[in-house]
């Protein structure tokens, strides 16, 4: 069993959940990982202060795509207030694999873009 490329990571990479466009949508953002040129955008539909639905789009490595796919399931139904408070540990724990310093931004790109759409804060999650 591969430590990083576990079956469920590869499964999410090959068949990512909640990928595509979502129209109409209320919030959107697009971010890049300057290290590798990866690009990830999100469309979010909001209802009663919560994420009703969302879709990611873009391209990236297995870690960034799987992280977005896994996070998307958790983010549905979450209040925007809670989304604003999500931190890097939340994502890394959710991913469930040892993420090296060089791959950290791959794992966090989706949270950066979602938080950016919700709060306008474009900083990397700490």
């Amino acid at each position: 069993m591969d430590d990083l490329y576990r079956d469920y990571i590869l499964e999410h990479y090959k068949r990512p959940k909640n990928f595509g466009e979502l129209d109409p949508h209320d919030l959107e953002a697009l971010e890049h990982n300057p290290l590798c040129g990866d690009e990830l955008g999100v469309h979010i539909r909001v209802r009663d202060g919560r994420i009703e639905d969302l879709r990611f789009h873009g391209h990236g490595c297995a870690i960034s795509q799987a992280a977005a796919s896994i996070a998307s399931e958790e983010l549905k139904g979450m209040s925007l207030k809670d989304v604003a408070e999500l931190d890097a540990d939340w994502m890394i724990d959710l991913l469930g694999i040892p993420v090296s310093a060089t791959r950290r931004k791959c794992a966090l790109l989706n949270l950066k873009v979602v938080r950016g759409a919700v709060t306008g804060d474009r900083a990397w999650p700490a």
Binding site: H59, C61, I63, C106
Partner: peptide
């Protein structure tokens, strides 16, 4: 396989290559 993963997989074989733009 995304190039970033290609470089990571190469590293497992002890091979240093670059990936990115």
């Amino acid at each position: 396989i995304h190039p970033h993963d290609v470089a990571e997989l190469a590293d497992r074989g002890g091979v240093c290559i670059r990936a990115g733009h």
